Computed example of a mutant assay.
Amino acid sequence: MSKQQHPWRLWLVTVFFFLATIFHPSFADVGTAAQYSPPYLPTACSGNDASQFPTNNLFAAAGDGIWDNGASCGRQYLVRCISAATPGTCNPSQTIQIRIVDRAETSVSRPSTNGATIILSTTAFGAIANPSAASVNIEFQQV
């Protein structure tokens, strides 16, 4: 007796791969982002060491939700603006990678809005949203 492939198995495998590509799981979180401007030193992570800042100036201070008793220092996140109080504020096609260098609660420069998840440098905030906004809603994922 010869083995014959069942057509429904091929159909089932095809449907599974189709659904897997459309409904992939998301590992990102949502929160809010504010911005802060210089002076950035000293920081809670590395004091007065200016080498902690990436050369592209895409860095941030961690809000209480991700501070993790200082374990967030040096962590990197992909950040994307998803919405804001004013339509057209976000640059939805832009995702940036930032490094945590400070704690929002103790940063020298105060954030534009208190209680945000991530406080972005002015360069980082301007890359994903209109810099005149005080805060935006973001999607972020640790990398």
Rank of each mutant, 00 (worst) to 15 (best):
A33N: 00
Q76P: 06
V143C: 14
P39D: 07
A34V: 02
T95F: 08
S26R: 09
G74T: 02
R103I: 03
A127C: 13
S121H: 01
T86N: 09
I22A: 07
Q94F: 08
Q4R: 14
W8F: 14
Y40A: 15
S112L: 08
I128M: 04
W11G: 14
S51K: 05
Y40I: 12
A134H: 09
N57A: 12
V13E: 09
S132R: 13
T117P: 01
G63M: 04
N114H: 05
L12K: 08
W67P: 01
Q94A: 07
F27S: 12
P87I: 06
Q141I: 13
R110F: 15
I128D: 06
Q141A: 10
A129V: 04
T21G: 14
D64C: 10
S2H: 10
F16M: 13
T21R: 14
T113S: 10
S112V: 04
D49K: 07
W8C: 15
Q52Y: 00
Y77L: 06
A133D: 09
P111K: 03
I128N: 01
T21P: 15
I118D: 02
Y36P: 12
F17L: 06
T95I: 09
S26M: 13
I22E: 07
S2F: 13
T21K: 15
S46Y: 12
T55M: 15
T123K: 10
L41D: 05
L19T: 08
A20F: 10
W8R: 13
N56A: 08
G31W: 00
R80D: 10
A133Y: 08
E139K: 08
D49I: 01
S72W: 04
V13N: 13
I66M: 00
A71G: 11
F59H: 02
Q35G: 11
A134F: 13
I138T: 00
P39W: 00
Y77I: 07
A61Q: 04
S107G: 08
T43N: 02
N91S: 12
R9E: 13
I96E: 06
L78Q: 14
Q35H: 07
N114T: 08
A71N: 10
N91D: 12
S93Y: 11
I128W: 01
I96L: 07
T43W: 00
F59E: 04
A50C: 10
R9Y: 11
P42V: 03
I96N: 03
A85E: 14
S72D: 07
F17D: 08
S37W: 06
P42T: 05
S132L: 08
G65M: 04
F59I: 07
L58V: 07
A60K: 00
N57M: 15
F23D: 12
C73W: 02
N56R: 00
R80M: 09
A124V: 03
V15M: 11
V30A: 12
K3A: 14
A127Y: 04
S132K: 13
Y40V: 15
S109L: 12
C90E: 01
C45S: 13
